[in-house]
Amino acid sequence: MNSFQLEVNIMQIKVLYFARIKEAVNYSSEDVDLPEDIETITALKHWLSKRGEVWANLFSGKLVVRAAINHNLVDDLATFEDGDEVAFFPPVTGG
């Protein structure tokens, strides 16, 4: 088991949540260790949706969830790297 874990490359990113998504998951940020094959917003949403019912409701595609990587608005095909900051939030409603 240990030898298997050593072979898996782990990527660590910071994930932030805002507005109704923050309220639903009940916290605003976390450091997440990811397998290295999770490198797009789409893949990260899918990975998060497996955490349980709350997460599945948010991230399985029923709701529109926008994303930013390192403070830039991105589409779901965008890729992130080790150390990046990814944020998830509902469509914006300022102004």
């Binding site: 507005a19 529109v64 944020a87």
Partner: peptide, 25 residues
């Protein structure tokens, strides 16, 4: 203004006597 409304990361939550709700885009 048109870009601010759709690109800038702000979210509104409004309350009235019935409670609180997030404003829909």
């Amino acid at each position: 203004m048109d870009y601010l409304k759709t690109q800038a990361p702000f979210w509104k939550k409004e309350t009235n006597s019935q409670g609180a709700r997030w404003v829909e885009a």
